[in-house]
């Protein structure tokens, strides 16, 4: 029973590297629409927006692993869920910082109190609260159970906050205040051909970072348990199956 086998595979990591190399090179080279105000900063679509898409997907995977944990109580699933959420939060912090830099150049100030900016900030605080909650408990079982439930609740709070609320009002962000999508920007399909690989590349890359973080944490736990002569999951006596 080697359920975490996908973590040790190399092919999807190579794929992530290829997609990201493509994004970096073609993202800088390809022709982009010449628009006033934006000028060359339109290329940030290839670098800033995938952060948010990647974050949403990382948080989604984290939530899925939280559900898996609640279904089968495997400690690995709890660790993986928390690692995905951690990387999601990292992407979110990068997204909000790059967004501020971009806002300074196009909208004039770093922080516009734009509905989407505020919503993203609230969403990030929600996930900071998740880690405060998680790390406030010493009992590992209790921590895993409570943070799994919290993760599921936070995800379904976060999605409406970041995707629906900004659309109910006027926002500087394209595609908000009524009309969906970012057609205002990438009318030409050339931009999509760099943007979608960027999203997939960052998602795979984030997953890769997640596997390294969670495997480190699993080794750390195993070490702790083996020193105290107990096994990590009561059900799995044969530890060979894990590695």
């Amino acid at each position: 029973m080697n359920t975490n086998n996908w973590m040790r595979k190399w092919w999807w990591k190579v794929l992530a590297i290829m997609l990201m190399l493509f994004t970096i090179v073609i993202g800088m080279m390809a022709t982009v629409p010449a628009l006033p105000i934006l000028h060359e900063t339109i290329r940030n679509l290839y670098y800033h927006v995938p952060m948010w898409f990647g974050m949403t997907l990382m948080l989604l995977f984290g939530m899925i692993f939280s559900i898996k944990f609640l279904r089968n109580s495997r400690m690995e699933d709890d660790i993986i869920a928390a690692s995905f959420t951690k990387v999601g939060l990292l992407f979110g912090c990068c997204g909000i910082t790059t967004g501020m830099i971009w806002a300074q150049s196009t909208w004039g100030v770093f922080w516009n109190n734009d509905p989407k900016e505020n919503a993203a900030a609230v969403g990030l605080l929600l996930y900071f609260a998740y880690f405060v909650l998680r790390n406030s408990m010493d009992d590992m079982d209790k921590r895993a159970r409570v943070s799994a439930v919290a993760n599921i609740i936070f995800y379904f709070t976060f999605i409406p906050i970041i995707f629906i609320v900004p659309r109910l009002t006027d926002s500087l962000h394209p595609g908000n205040g009524g009309n969906p999508g970012f057609n205002a920007y990438d009318l030409d399909s050339n931009m999509r051909m760099v943007f979608y690989p960027a999203v997939i590349g960052w998602t795979l890359f984030g997953t890769w970072i997640t596997t390294v973080i969670s495997r480190t944490e699993i080794v750390n736990r195993e070490l702790h348990f083996s020193m105290n002569n107990i096994s990590m999951n009561n059900s799995s006596k044969q530890l060979d199956s894990k590695f």
Binding site: L15, T31, Y196, P197
Partner: peptide, 25 residues
């Protein structure tokens, strides 16, 4: 999966930028 994903990055001819007065690099 690899084939499908790499299929996306097959770049076809990039169109010439139309003449505009917008300053680009």
């Amino acid at each position: 999966i690899s084939f499908l994903l790499l299929q996306i990055i097959t770049v076809t001819a990039f169109a010439q930028r139309p003449d505009t007065n917008v300053e680009m690099a």
